[in-house]
Write a protein that binds this DNA or RNA. Structure first.
Length: 531
DNA sequence: TTACATT
């Protein structure tokens, strides 16, 4: 099996933008495996070490404060003045038995060098071990050594697939050379895919997406060393052949970037409006204009952060949006006022939220197909295969879905970086956590008053609608206590005024049905006036 | 239909 060595030198100088934490493994029951079975390679230092690394929850790793004092396992590098090389590689470690904690994993990895940070990913709500970790060595070289020695090379006890040791997606910035490959034969292995793509360039990573049972989902990610190579592979291979057993010809497209995934979330939200209660048949223009509003917002964000990266293809055609209206991404029952289940999870920028993660199946029999933001064709085929082409860190990110739902149902991970929990499976997050964050007012200038909400909108729908504009710290739709009906107005609070302004800009006057949203800053307390 | 963090 080929090994794929990262060539991310020089890309680590800046702090990575907040990126979704990869959720490589769906929550599963821990595999009971004795730690003693962990077999370190030759030269390992198996003696127990004190826990020196910081235990961090997912989503907090980007704001990891550097330890202030030196310690035996943290070296201060002279050039950078930090604890690790500036070009240190953050590694993603996958296929870890769930009974192994940092202290158990440490000996295995320490043989390749001093560890700067090792963090097992835990479910935000349940604290459950996610079967993967992030590992940063003090030295870049250690990471490369570890990757070479371990990636796909050994299988930890109790696991059915070999350990994954590769640069974390947050490190790579490699989406411009990473391909999504769909419509593969489910028999095709990494090796096969590798051979297929080998002629077009240097492959750094090749991963077949698999379900929990290890079965291929008929698609893969292939990362080339350059964008040009990736492009040539697309030109040569996309649609070039139909694999035995595949329903249509091979799909080769650039994998979604983080930003595209963000856009996808928005698209999904658009779909959400039309489906969470079939009684609301929002006029088509709604989808389009909301999407448009979102696109504008996203374009602004992108232009600000990436010098105008957004391509025209991101503006999806109206027909696609309409289809998305039939695409259920929220399995709320037709009485969606109580945000207890069927919620979508927040993106990583929700700092204080504790909204349950969920992936929602499409259960209404419609076959709406979300459009691919990057405009590549044949996406339908990909989705027909049951796989949302996310650039997930690990092939297992959406696995739970596949297991739980098949056939005409299709899946959409609203926030693929979070724990994926299909309806019908356990939904651990306790509802009361949701209540905690409600009715929280943000600072002055961060609170919006929204009027003319659709009758069917609850707190969650309101939040979903405003999430694209920033971190929503609370959302509240007012209910008539007698009828338990929405009063069609509510509040949304952001954590900063800029988000609030962006939301006003994009959403004030936004047409839903016969009404137009009124989105204004909430009146300050002292400015109360009678109606 | 124009109500600004409720009962």
């Amino acid at each position: 099996m080929a090994r794929f060595i990262s060539r991310e030198a020089g890309r680590q100088q800046r702090c990575p933008a907040p990126a979704p934490v990869p959720a490589p493994a769906p929550s599963r029951a821990p595999v009971p495996v004795p730690c003693s079975l962990l077999a370190p390679g030759p030269g390992a230092a198996p003696s127990p070490q004190p826990l020196l690394f910081l235990l961090l929850l997912p989503y907090q790793h980007q704001v990891l404060p550097e330890p202030m004092n030196g310690s035996e396992s943290i070296s201060i590098h002279p050039e950078s003045g930090t604890m690790k090389d500036q070009d240190a590689i953050k590694l993603f470690i996958g296929q870890i038995p769930r009974n192994l904690e940092e202290k158990d994993l440490k000996p295995l990895f320490e043989q390749f060098g001093k560890i700067h940070e090792l963090t097992v990913l835990k479910d935000r709500y349940t604290g459950m071990h996610k079967g993967c970790a992030f590992l940063t060595y003090c030295a870049r070289e250690s990471a490369i050594k570890a990757q070479n020695a371990l990636h796909e090379q050994k299988t930890l006890p109790g696991m059915t697939r070999p350990i994954q040791v590769k640069p974390a997606d947050s490190e790579s910035r490699g989406e411009d050379r990473k391909l999504f490959v769909g419509m593969l034969n489910k028999q095709q292995t990494e090796e096969d895919v590798y051979r297929l793509f080998e002629p077009y360039g240097v492959i750094e990573e090749c991963t077949v997406l698999r379900g929990p049972d290890g079965n291929s989902k008929g698609c893969a990610f292939v990362k080339f060393s350059t964008h040009a190579e990736a492009q040539s592979a697309i030109s040569a291979l996309h649609g070039s052949q139909t694999m035995p057993g595949a329903s249509s010809s091979l799909v080769v497209k650039f994998a979604d970037t983080d930003k595209e995934r963000t856009i996808r979330r928005m698209q999904q939200m658009v779909g959400q409006f039309g489906i969470f209660n079939p009684a609301i048949a929002l006029p088509f223009s709604t989808y389009s204009s909301y999407a448009h509003a979102l696109m504008q917002q996203q374009a602004a964000l992108m232009a600000a952060s990436h010098g105008g990266y957004l391509t025209p293809s991101v503006a999806f055609p109206a027909t696609q949006i309409h289809q998305m209206g039939a695409l259920n991404i929220n399995s709320l029952p037709p009485t969606p006022m109580t945000p207890v289940s069927g919620l979508s999870s927040p993106p990583a920028n929700i700092t204080s939220s504790a909204v349950p993660s969920i992936v929602t199946p499409i259960v209404n029999g419609f076959t709406g197909i979300p459009h691919q933001p990057n405009g590549h064709p044949a996406v339908e085929a990909v989705y027909a295969n049951g796989l949302p082409p996310y650039s997930t860190q690990s092939p297992t990110a959406a696995d739970t879905l596949q297991q739980a739902f098949t056939g005409v149902q299709q899946y959409t991970a609203i926030y693929p970086a979070t724990t994926l929990t299909p309806i019908g499976q356990s939904l651990p997050p306790p509802p009361q956590v949701i209540q905690q964050q409600q009715q929280r007012e943000g600072p002055e200038g961060c609170n919006l008053f929204i009027y003319h909400l659709p009758q069917e909108f609850g707190d969650n729908e309101l939040m979903q609608m405003f999430l694209p504009f920033g971190t929503v710290i609370s959302s509240k739709v007012f209910m008539d206590r007698a009828t338990n009906q929405s009063k069609c107005f509510g509040f949304v609070s952001f954590d900063n005024p800029a988000s609030a302004q962006a939301a006003i800009q994009a959403m004030n006057g936004f047409q839903i049905g016969m009404k137009r949203l009124k989105v204004q800053l909430k009146r300050p307390k002292d400015a109360s006036r009678p109606y």
